[in-house]
Every structure is written in C-alpha cells, then in structure tokens.
Amino acid sequence: MFGRLRAWKRRHSLLVDTLALTPLALLGLLSTRISSTAPEAYGTSRVGTVGLLLLSAMLVVPLIWRRKYPVVAFAVVALVSFVQWVVGITVLPVNAAVLVGMYGVAARRPLKWAIAAAVVTEIGIFLWLLRTADSALDQWPGPTVFIVSIWVSGIYRNMRQRYVESLVERAERAEHERDQQARIATAAERTRIARELHDVVAHNVSVMVVQADGAGYAIDTDPEQARLAVQAVSSTGRQALAEMRRLVGVLRDDRTSGGEYAPQPGLEQLADLIEQVRASGLPVDFTRSGPQHEVPDGEQLVIYRIIQEALTNTLKHGGPSVRASVRVEYGAHDVTLTVSDDGRGASAARADDGHGLIGMRERVGMYGGTVHAAPRPGGGFQVTARLPIGQTT
C-alpha cells in the first residue's frame, strides 16, 4: 500500500507539491482579510484587494516548482518580497513563502546555495525591522533563531537524502558487479561444457567412421556383420545429432587445440571417481537402484560432473569427520542423483561463490533437467538432480 502511494506521488509530483501549498494559500487569503481591516496601517490602501490577491499569488505560485527549481523559486519569492518592501506594504502572513523557499534551497541544493538563501532571508528580515522596529539590532536575534532552525532542518534533510542516495548507488553498483560476475561465470561454464560436448560428439563421429569402414569391408563377405555395423552407425549418428542440437547457443572457444578426440568420463567411470574420493579421505557410500538402461554419452558426462562437483565441495567445506553418500536412481525415463553429506551445511561457503552450482544448472538445463542444492534440515548439505534420458531437442 505504502509502495503504491509513493509511486503515485512520484508520478504526480507537481499535483502533490501544489496541494502541499494549500496552507500557504490560506495564509494569502488571511493576509488579504487582515490588511483590509486597516489598509493604512499595512500600507495596502494603494493596491486594494485585487492587488493583495495578486501579491499573494506571486508569492505562492512559484513555490509549486520548488522541488525541480528551488533556487529560481526562492529568487522569485525573494524579489517579490523586496518589491513589496519598496512599495511600502508591511510584512503579511503570506510572506512565510520566503521561509518555504529558503528551506527548499537548503534541502535540495549544495551548501553554497543554502548559505546564499539564508543570507538573503536575513537581509530581508533586517530590512523589515529597520522600517517597523525602534531598534532593528535589538529585535534581530529572535527572528534569526527561527530562520536558522528552519535552515538547519533543510540542511539535515539534504544530508540525509544524499546519504540515502549514496547507499542506493552502492547497492546498485554491487548488484551490477554481482550480476556481471555471474554472467562471466556462466559464460565460462558454458564454454567448458561446450568443449566437453564437442569431444563427445567428435568421438561419436569417429565411431561412425570406423563402423562405416567396417561395413564397407564386410558387405561382401559377411552381410550380417555389415548390417549390424550400419545399424551402429545410424544409432551413433542420431545420438551425435542430438548432442549437436544441444550445442546450439552454447559458446565455445575456437582456439581448442587439435589432437585425438577421446570420450569424456561417464557412468562406467563413476566407481573410479568414488574410489579416488575415498582415497582422499572422504568416506563415501555409493548405491545404484532401478533398471539400468542405456544413457547417451552427453548425459553420462553431466551425471559424472555433478557427482564430481558435489563430492569436491564436500571435501572442501564439509569439515572434519564428514561422510558422504551418492545415490543414482534409474527411472523409466530419467535418472535421479542424490549426493549428501553430514558436514557443516549452511555454515560453510559452497561451490566457489555459487559458480559450481551455476555449472550444474547449465549442464542439467541443456537436457531439460532440474537441480537443487541446499543445506539439509538435520545438518549437512545435499545436491539433488533429475535428468531426463533419451529426450532430444
């Protein structure tokens, strides 16, 4: 509710500033009423009621733009008040517009302009006292204290507003830098993933070439073997095509060095990964469940990397005497990974400020999967990923 009200005030700032001057406009009407009772005493006999209303309008209307043009609004009000003094019209309640204008300058402009506005206001007060008081110097301190208090409140508002703006600016800059770092990390992860998938696809193409060569040699002597080789070429080609489709939009460094293409690690290497982690001093329980079926090479690489990343984070941040468990569950159309530990959980910094999690999400996202990483309610940390199997895009 308050947020909508503030937004409405920003959109209709001119209307709000006009309505805020209603008390000052009433003072203008009061000034006309008071001076009409004794025009000679107030020096208003020569201008009449219409002149007083015009004077009040000239003092009030410029303040409508006091937020956008505070110095100009104050200068106009001060000049009108000076002309009023020259004509011989005494101080009226509507002359409080000078104080409103001075406050606007102090609250919205640098200190030099605030000091200038205060000096002009003090000179105006001194001129009025010269005309109306027996001893202007004796009467001057009282109004000065009142003027200074208004001026100081404007200076305080100015300082507070600048402080808030600086906080907002720093917060926006920090958010921009954080987003930039996240984009850089995302680009780096995509580059690395693209290079790995490139190797997977290149390996599949190499297999297709070998199978096609074998089919060519066996087509006359062993037609059945040639038929199986051609089927292998077809299956491998479809798999390579699916991987290539997922590479679209993923950045890749063209400066990749040449050389022999080798398949990236997959499900068959999980046991070796678990043993390597155990040798590093982290006890790991590893289980598989469900009917194991064929998983494309690219998705095998995703499964391997997620488990590797999660266990690496446990080694880094889990603390002493931590234990981990890895569970791979095969479903009819997906594979679910769960890597959990009983370490320090939420109290530990994880995955290099979130870059590891970004990599997991990028990998799984290319295959339409999901990943969730968070502290466990009973202590420790858990990474859960679901990866659809055999779906092409």
Rank of each mutant, 00 (worst) to 15 (best):
L111S: 08
I125P: 03
R170F: 06
H176E: 09
A118Y: 13
R108E: 08
T186G: 12
Q84K: 03
H198V: 01
D134M: 06
Y103C: 09
L127K: 01
H198A: 03
G104I: 01
Y163P: 00
V205R: 02
N95V: 08
E175H: 08
T132N: 06
P93T: 07
A78F: 14
M102W: 11
I147N: 15
N204C: 04
D179I: 04
R183I: 01
E122C: 13
M208R: 03
S149L: 14
V83W: 15
A202W: 00
W85F: 15
Q161P: 00
A194Q: 02
V119A: 09
R108I: 01
F126L: 10
P93D: 13
R157M: 10
V86M: 15
P93H: 13
Y103R: 07
G154V: 04
L111W: 12
V83I: 15
L92D: 10
A188S: 10
I184N: 02
A185V: 02
S135K: 07
W113M: 11
A171G: 00
V209E: 11
S149A: 15
D138W: 15
R195G: 02
N158Q: 12
L129C: 00
D138E: 08
H203M: 00
G88Y: 08
A133S: 14
Q84D: 10
M102F: 06
V119P: 10
R109L: 11
D199N: 03
V148I: 09
R160E: 04
A78D: 07
A96M: 15
V86D: 12
Y156W: 12
V98L: 15
A117P: 03
S166C: 00
R195Y: 02
V119D: 08
Q181W: 10
R160T: 01
I123D: 00
N95H: 14
E189L: 06
R173T: 12
P141M: 08
V91T: 14
V168T: 06
V94G: 10
V164N: 02
L197H: 07
A171R: 06
S135R: 07
R109G: 04
I184T: 10
E122W: 11
A118H: 13
L79G: 14
I89N: 12
A107V: 03
I155D: 05
E189A: 14
V86W: 13
V145F: 15
W151T: 08
H203Q: 01
I123G: 00
D138I: 14
R160D: 00
V209F: 04
E169F: 04
T186C: 05
V207E: 05
G142D: 08
F146Q: 12
N95Q: 11
Q161N: 10
Y156F: 12
A187P: 00
